[in-house]
Design a protein around this nucleic acid. Structure first.
Lengths: 192, 192
DNA sequence: TAATAGATTGACTAATCAGTCGATATTTAA
DNA sequence: TTAAATATCGACTGATTAGTCAATCTATTA
């Protein structure tokens, strides 16, 4: 297996379990089955490793979301896909989803260039603008809409985690109706 | 000034800015104006300091919320107070609010005993049960309600942070209408 | 006053860890 | 086949840091 990838995988597992501080690079290398120096051959510093792991995970999710997009979908359908795909991806990749938050609430986030972060949310912002233009969505600032949807997804995800597997999809569905109700314009609702 | 409190205040500031790893105990002691040994007199380990800081902050917020509670308030009014007080407290105490999330997405959370965490959310859970019994709130699991409200508060808070001060209260108000709309029973809505 | 307990100090240490480096192996390209 | 480039190794180091400790100071109490 590709050693660079092995290092990333191992780092993810250890960072999530023991935190950044609690994970020495030597342990990452050892668990990944590579020499100490090899880790620094691929990632010049520990900080670089932390950042590149973050970016690779965000890219993975974004690529999956992009692959689902279908121009002929209605706004609601498109939004539904975004929501379901994200939550289900998070359920299958709990470590990765957790790691995103872990970086988000750490000083490492400030080390990631603004343009990289912007690149990550670009797709969502474009979608939001399209949705608003369609009139299916309440008039509100883009930022607010983005933040609300994000936090709702976080909330539902966290709740679903506490549930038995066979009830999860129902809850996700309910969560979708709620958030859609929250953001769709009442006008659109009437004619729905 | 009380040295123990000075240490906690300094630790908060440094942890938020530089993270747990990036903040040596020696720097906390120095910035707090106490000797190295004094820090360990009050907090036997760095881990203890991290945990006690978390608990003290949560307690502070909970006490403020409890002091606002008024038994004669309607459910909506009581919920409104909870929501407004939390967000406004968060705006005034951004470091503390951030620190709560920082601990939440770190391995340190697992070090805090279940009973302490439960104690922290007890008030909210009691309120949720009262609200549900009143019929003003949609029928849904306590956990879901709790998580949804929490994440909605996080979302609104984060959005409000990006806004100029003079528009913040309006946004918080709008956010309240949204979340109330999300959780109040349609039956109660009709007779409102 | 004398005695006890707690608070405070800062130099010190044992351990850890991020990152280096020179040597060796492997792959690629000419 | 040869040469250059890249990958891999792991012992090593310089710096850092959590936590200790014996000594001193301060407050309380009998």
């Amino acid at each position: 297996m590709d050693k660079e990838k092995k290092i990333l995988d191992t780092a993810l597992k250890l960072f999530v379990e023991f935190g950044f501080h609690g994970t020495p690079t030597s342990k990452i290398a050892k668990d990944a089955g590579v020499a100490n120096g090899t880790l620094f051959h691929y990632f010049s510093t520990k900080e670089t490793l932390i950042k590149e792991l973050y970016v690779s995970i965000k890219n993975e999710l974004n690529q999956i979301l992009a692959s689902q997009a279908n121009p002929t979908d209605s706004i609601k359908e498109a939004f539904r896909k975004l929501y379901f795909t994200t939550i289900n991806w998070a359920l299958v990749n709990q470590d990765k989803f957790y790691y995103i938050q872990q970086v988000h609430f750490s000083p490492h986030l400030a080390q990631i260039p603004e343009e990289v972060l912007h690149e990550q949310s670009k797709m969502h912002i474009t979608f939001i603008e399209k949705a608003k233009a369609s009139g299916d969505i309440k008039i509100m600032p883009n930022e607010l809409l983005y933040t609300l949807v994000n936090s709702q997804i976080m909330g539902i995800y966290q709740y679903v985690l506490t549930q038995p597997t066979d009830q999860q999809q129902d809850s996700i569905e309910q969560g979708f109706e709620m958030i859609w109700d929250l953001i769709c314009s009442s006008q659109a609702k009437i004619y729905e």
